[in-house]
Amino acid sequence: LRLEVKLGQGCFGEVWMGTWNGTTRVAIKTLKPGTMSPEAFLQEAQVMKKLRHEKLVQLYAVVSEEPIYIVTEYMSKGSLLDFLKGETGKYLRLPQLVDMAAQIASGMAYVERMNYVHRDLRAANILVGENLVCKVADFGLARLIEDNEYTARQGAKFPIKWTAPEAALYGRFTIKSDVWSFGILLTELTTKGRVPYPGMVNREVLDQVERGYRMPCPPECPESLHDLMCQCWRKEPEERPTFEYLQAFL
């Protein structure tokens, strides 16, 4: 395994491009020591290896001592969030954005069929390849993070704006909380990567959403798509659509 080009840095580690087995181009995620327990990670990795779908980033291998390494397929255009905010983002029109959403829903419909939960679905965790191919990455890892700023769910590192209220408040993460996050991801797509709930801080978002506030229809977004977002944001988790439905609708 060779680490060649550093692609990015996040709160919990770095991402590199490299070569595996001398020939395969891969992405390598390294986790800061202390982010998660190697034992817990190894268990999760076994499950992650079983998830194989064309719209999920394929896991190739893991190094399960500290520092933990995760070796996955390489996606040339990086994260969907950076892609939307970058040069190419300007030229993306609604049909392409909807197609990308459908690809993500397709990957998540598979996660749904496998009775698995992602827990951290957002544009930053979707990767883009050639020809606007989108794949879901980092599934299941969020559960293992041991950082206090994260586990408190009120901490600075927790993605509260993407998280369903029952998950943020009571830790009830299910495929239905993933559906909520998918609704937020749809706003990221239609606004080219704007942060959700602009002008609001995490605490406010939690309070307002509890009181029934939902983001309005983004500019140039059809009402039918906003309606779909609002279905994803129904207060009762069981009233939210399935990913199978979302995939078919898109």
Rank of each mutant, 00 (worst) to 15 (best):
L80R: 02
E244V: 13
N125P: 01
N115A: 06
P165C: 14
Y110D: 07
A152H: 01
A137L: 03
Q9N: 05
K50C: 13
M215Y: 03
L7D: 13
S177P: 01
E87S: 12
K85R: 14
V117F: 03
N148I: 04
T24D: 15
E44P: 00
P165V: 10
A101T: 06
W162K: 00
Q46E: 13
I28L: 10
W20P: 09
S64V: 04
N148S: 09
W233T: 08
P237M: 13
M17W: 13
P159T: 01
L59I: 03
Q103Y: 07
I145R: 04
L169Q: 07
G129Y: 06
E65Q: 10
S181N: 01
V63F: 07
H226P: 01
E87A: 12
P196W: 03
M200P: 02
Q43V: 05
F173Q: 00
L80V: 13
R25C: 11
K235C: 15
K6G: 15
V47S: 05
N202K: 07
V98P: 05
R153H: 11
G107V: 03
A105D: 00
L80C: 12
E54F: 12
K135R: 14
L225Y: 08
Q247M: 03
N21H: 13
G129R: 13
L141S: 03
S181D: 01
S79N: 15
L186R: 01
K29P: 01
R122P: 01
I175L: 15
D138E: 00
T151C: 08
L92P: 07
R240A: 01
K6N: 12
G140K: 00
W16H: 15
A102C: 07
D178P: 00
E66R: 15
K77P: 15
Y170P: 03
W233P: 00
S181H: 01
L246Y: 08
T30E: 06
L225G: 06
D82P: 04
K49S: 06
T151L: 14
G78N: 09
M17S: 11
E188Q: 00
Y110T: 05
L169W: 14
K55T: 13
E220C: 10
Y245R: 15
T187Q: 09
P95V: 07
R25E: 09
Y170L: 08
K85P: 07
A101Y: 00
P38M: 10
R214F: 08
A105T: 10
V63Q: 05
G212K: 05
D82F: 11
K157D: 01
L51K: 00
T23L: 13
F249S: 06
R234E: 09
F12R: 01
L186K: 02
V15L: 01
C217G: 10
E188V: 00
W16C: 15
T23C: 09
R211P: 04
L84H: 03
Y60E: 13
R2Y: 06
R194L: 10
E220L: 07
V128R: 03
D82M: 06
Y150D: 03
Q208P: 06
M48L: 07
V47H: 07
L97S: 05
G78R: 11
N202H: 07
P198R: 05
A142G: 02
D178S: 01
T35Q: 15
T187I: 10
C232G: 07
L80I: 14
Y170W: 11
M114P: 01
M48S: 04
P95A: 08
